[in-house]
């Protein structure tokens, strides 16, 4: 394994560790007693005290942090106060919605971004380019939950092709469940795709000005062959980085979009837990989402090493 990958792996672990610390501190140090938060300000002192004991809040913070972490590492999540079940149990069904949703949106946005970006770059400064850039500028400016509402207006209220929300569950057939995720994933992917498309276009245009592209043309390669063999792979390097960074926004987007479409996924669970003041659930979910972002970015780094031979050999 090259030094690059070792470094990235250490960073990966450190970021995960940092995420747990930040989450723990945010819920711990910030004003507000978790027990009091759960029971509400009006709760009698005795009840609050009992809950504090039950949650182990009388023990030192460091001890509780390590309890929590070692629990997570062994797959032991906290217990929801509201539902009285393990967070893991709550997650099982919900991940079945959030992960497919995020993946569909990711794939959709990448397909959108690469095809639009490539098209715009090949039409540089012509009508096609200007149109794509204009539309993507609009796409970036539209809040995803509003786009979701507009999609509901058009396809559910007006055309009645889709239902306005809800999720039938995978057990009742793959197609109905998949269908329920189509509008949400479009709403999620459009904004991400618009950002990525603009980025892809400028990365391609920038690469096309490189000397080695001129070399390829001087060899006799056609414009199209040059684009596919020499430009695209080089242009993908910055695009992949942005894709990784965008994933955090994509996950954040699922929280919003799941709420618009009333999908019982992880994002909706977080919001419900907040309104029910279920701190234990919030804490575990936040760490889970952060971990997903970090893991995706680690894979992006791995992808780097595949694309760029300079990283395999050199210690950067």
């Amino acid at each position: 394994m090259s030094l690059f990958l070792v470094k990235r792996f250490i960073t990966f672990l450190a970021t995960l560790f940092g995420a747990t610390i930040l989450t723990f501190l945010a819920l711990e140090i910030l004003p507000g007693d978790p027990a009091l938060v759960i029971l509400g300000v009006d709760a009698p002192d005795s009840a609050v005290e009992a809950l504090r004991l039950e949650m182990g809040l009388d023990r030192p913070a460091i001890e509780r942090y390590f309890d929590w972490i070692s629990g997570l590492l062994q797959g032991r999540f906290g217990t929801s106060y509201t539902y009285s079940v393990s967070v893991l149990e709550l997650l099982e069904a919900r991940l079945g919605i959030t992960i497919p949703l995020a993946l569909m949106a990711m794939v959709l946005s990448v397909v959108m971004a690469l095809s639009l970006g490539l098209y715009a770059a090949s039409q540089h400064n012509k009508r096609g380019d200007v149109t794509v850039m204009g539309v993507s500028q609009l796409g970036i400016s539209v809040p995803n939950f509003w786009l979701a509402l507009l999609l509901i207006l058009l396809f559910a209220v007006h055309l009645r092709w889709f239902s306005a929300g809800g999720f039938p569950g995978w057990e009742n057939g793959v197609w109905p469940a998949f269908k329920a995720l189509i509008l949400p994933s479009i709403a999620l992917a459009t904004v991400q795709g618009a950002i990525l498309a603009r980025f892809t276009r400028s990365a391609i245009l920038e690469t096309m000005r490189e000397d080695y592209v001129r070399t390829a043309r001087a060899k006799g390669l056609t414009r199209r062959a040059t684009l596919w063999k020499h430009v695209l792979r080089n242009a993908l390097i910055p695009v992949v980085t942005i894709m990784g960074l965008q994933f955090a926004n994509l996950l954040a987007g699922t929280i919003v979009v799941e709420n618009v479409f009333a999908l019982p996924g992880v994002g909706r669970l977080i919001l419900q837990s907040i309104s029910q003041r279920d701190v234990v659930v919030v804490r575990d979910l936040v760490v889970l989402l952060a971990a997903m972002v970090v893991i995706v970015n680690f894979f992006v780094d791995l992808l780097y090493a595949v694309i760029d031979p300079r990283l395999k050999a050199h210690d950067i």
């Binding site: 000397d211 080695y212 070399t215 020499h230 080089n234 694309i307 760029d308 300079r310």
Partner: peptide
């Protein structure tokens, strides 16, 4: 420019 005239990825 020999430094930039070759494709770094091939």
């Amino acid at each position: 420019e020999p430094m930039t005239s070759l494709n770094p990825l091939h």
